[in-house]
Design a binder for these strands. Sequence first.
DNA 1: CGGGTTTTTACAAGATTTTTACAACTTGCG
DNA 2: CGCAAGTTGTAAAAATCTTGTAAAAACCCG
Lengths: 119, 119
Amino acid sequence: MIPQGAYRDEHFIVDFEHQRAYLDNKAMVLTRKEFELLATLAGNAGDIVPRDILLQNIWGYSPEIRTRTMDVHIRRLRKKLAGYGESYIETIFGVGYRFQPYRAPRQISSPLYALASVA
Amino acid sequence: MIPQGAYRDEHFIVDFEHQRAYLDNKAMVLTRKEFELLATLAGNAGDIVPRDILLQNIWGYSPEIRTRTMDVHIRRLRKKLAGYGESYIETIFGVGYRFQPYRAPRQISSPLYALASVA
DNA sequence: CGGGTTTTTACAAGATTTTTACAACTTGCG
DNA sequence: CGCAAGTTGTAAAAATCTTGTAAAAACCCG
């Protein structure tokens, strides 16, 4: 589930091997569960990871167990990913979560184009 | 595990070969176990050394043995490293300990370097 | 023996994780 | 639309787990 090597984008790095993550080149302080969760999501960046799977893989819970612990962990991660938090960890309602690689704000070449999307 | 040669920073020196350590140029008085522990940590300065590994390498204990003896030794070392004690030996909760060289650039200076070895 | 060293014991303190209780949000349907 | 059922978000408390510590006991080894 958690791949070898590393995940990396413009602001965020996960070094799976050394169990560390960096945000804008600063080491994040993460607990074990926080790291596992973040690493699992980032390791599957772009793909939805279902709640069932996360609960099974990280907590060893079977799907019928009712708990909010994962949501609490997600919240703490979003907090620690400050600023980018909302855009990195996306909620897929009724399914799970998806880690979205950072996308640089695109330079808009034509002001008309920008206006078009607002209108 | 304990390397040849010496560890050295601005205040602290470990001479692995002669099994001696110096704090601000004064020879420390260390028992054998204390030296082994300190040398192991300093010899891996900057890296986390897991409790399991320390227990195995220094005490020959397997991971499931429950004992506080290592914690007691850590405490004595911190005491003897007076003043610098807290900053030298860092606790990594749930994992182990890490010896941080004096005034080392906070954490890992370049995550990119760390990743190079992974890539 | 005897004195230093090491380990155990028994809690205290601290950190992490989970639960609880409820608020806020999404979605489907009449 | 408007609402009900189900899902996710959140703060705070509780539970659990890990580490720190003092003191005493056990262990060595001359």
